[in-house]
Amino acid sequence: MSVKSAAASAPFAPFSGPFAIGTLSASGGAAFPGLVAPDGRGLDLRTALGEPALTTLALLERWDETLPRLHALAADRAGAWLSLDDLRVHAPVEPRQIFQSGANYRQHVIDLAVAHRAPDDPRTVEEARAEVAAVMDKRAAEDLPYVFIGLPTTISGPYDDVVLPARAEKPDWELELAAVISRPAYRVTVEEALEYVAGYTIANDLTDRATVFRRDMPPIGTDWLRSKNAPGFTPLGPWIVPAGSIADPSDLQVTLKLNGETMQDESTNDMIFGVARLISYISQTARLLPGDLVLTGSPAGNGIHWGRLLRDGDVMDGSVTGLGAQRTRCVAEEAR
C-alpha cells in the first residue's frame, strides 16, 4: 500500500518543519526508517547514515545525537530521494509501551458522562453537565491525570484498513495527539518532561463503547483490554514530526472527518493535563523508553456523542495541525 492507498486514496498532507521521520518500504522490500521532506519525498536513512540494519526505534534511541545529522540530510537536495507515491507508509514506530490518557479533554468528558447517564437519572442535561464540569475542575486542581496502558499490537499504519471485530457492538473513533519519547524517562519533573520528547504524531485510539464498562461486575469499573486492544485498533502516523518543529503542543487543532463530514474539531488547549504533565505523571511510576507513545486523550465529537458509531465501509480522515494526515477505511471482520 503506497501513501495513496488502494483502499482509501489519501493525498499527501504537508507537515511543519524541514523534515519528519517515517517508516517506509518499497514494493516487496523490508521496512526502513525514512527522512520525509514536506514536498512528498523520502530518503532511506539506512543508506544515508551508512547503517544497513538501522530501524526507526534504533534511530529514536539515539535521537539527540542523530538529530543534527538529520537536519543536514534534509538540507541536502542531492540525496537519493524517492517519491512517496512509490513507497508504502507504515506506522512510524513500533513502540514497546503505549500510555493512554483518558478523560483528558474537558468537553469530551462532559459529553460522555451525559451520554452514559442512567435512564432513571433525575438530573436534567444541564445539571449533569454542570456536575461533571465541577468534577473536571477538581481533578485539575488536585493534579490527578488518568492513564492506562495499551498493547503495541494495536498499532496499524496511517492508511491501513481498520478491521472492526465482530464482537465490537459500538466501535468509535478517538483522534489524538501522541508524543513520541526520545530517551529513558523516570521520575522527571514537569519542567524537564518535554526534553524527553522526540516528536509528535497522530493516533486514532479506537474504542468499543459497549465493552468499556464491566457489566458483570460494575465495581471493577473499566475494561480497557476488551474495549481498546483489538489488533490494528490504533492507526498511527503518518509521521513523527520533531518536537522542535511544533511551537506549542497545547495549541494544535485535532480534526476527524467521517466520510467527509467533520465530527471532531477541537484544539489541544481543551486538555486538562498537557503533554509535560502527563509525561511527568507517568514517569513517577513507570520508566518510559525511546519510541514509547504517550496518547494525550481525545477531544469532543466522538461517535457516542453523535449517535453514529463506525460500520463497514466508513472512511476516517484524521489530521492534527503540523503533523500531516491519515486516512483509514473500516472493514467489518465478517467482510474479510
Score class of each variant (00 low, 15 high):
Ser267Glu: 00
Leu252Asp: 00
Pro52Lys: 12
Asn229Thr: 15
Leu60Asp: 02
Arg106Pro: 04
Thr296Asp: 03
Asn229Gln: 15
Tyr146Pro: 00
Gln264Trp: 04
Leu177Asn: 03
Phe15Pro: 05
Ala134Cys: 06
Ala140Pro: 01
Leu87Phe: 12
Gly297His: 02
Pro242Leu: 06
Leu87Pro: 01
Asp120Glu: 15
Leu59Gln: 03
Ala325Asp: 02
Thr47Gly: 14
Gly297Trp: 00
Pro11Trp: 02
Ser156Phe: 07
Ala185Ile: 08
Phe273Lys: 00
Val163Ile: 15
His108Asn: 10
Thr189Phe: 09
Glu261Thr: 14
Arg336Tyr: 03
Asp120His: 15
Pro119Leu: 08
Gly199Asp: 09
Asp44Gly: 10
Glu131Asn: 02
Phe32Trp: 12
Ala118Glu: 15
Asp172Pro: 10
Arg96Asn: 13
Asp111Trp: 05
Arg287Trp: 03
Ala103Thr: 07
Gly244Lys: 08
Arg77His: 14
Ala178Arg: 01
Asp248Phe: 11
Leu206Pro: 01
Ile21Arg: 00
Trp63Gly: 02
Gly22Met: 03
Asp265His: 14
Gly307Ile: 10
Asp205Arg: 06
Ala335Glu: 14
Pro11Gln: 12
Pro33Met: 07
Ala140Asp: 01
Ser245Asp: 11
Ala168Pro: 02
Ala20Phe: 10
Phe15Val: 07
Ala115Pro: 10
Gly17Phe: 10
Asp270Val: 03
Ile279Val: 12
Gly307Arg: 09
Ala335Arg: 15
Asp223Arg: 13
Ser182Glu: 01
Thr262Asn: 06
Leu70Ser: 06
Leu256Ala: 10
Asp314Gln: 07
His305Trp: 11
Asp86His: 13
Pro92Cys: 11
Ala37Tyr: 02
Met217Arg: 14
Ala103Glu: 02
Pro33Arg: 05
Glu51Met: 13
His108Gly: 01
Leu60Phe: 03
Arg327Asn: 04
Thr321Leu: 09
Arg129Pro: 04
Glu142Cys: 00
Leu164Cys: 04
Ile155Tyr: 06
Pro122Cys: 09
Gln284Gly: 14
Tyr146Phe: 15
Tyr159Cys: 03
Gly322Pro: 06
Gln100Gly: 11
Asp39Cys: 09
Ala325Lys: 06
Gly29Ile: 00
Gly322Ser: 07
Asn204Cys: 09
Gly199Gln: 09
Glu266Pro: 01
Met136His: 01
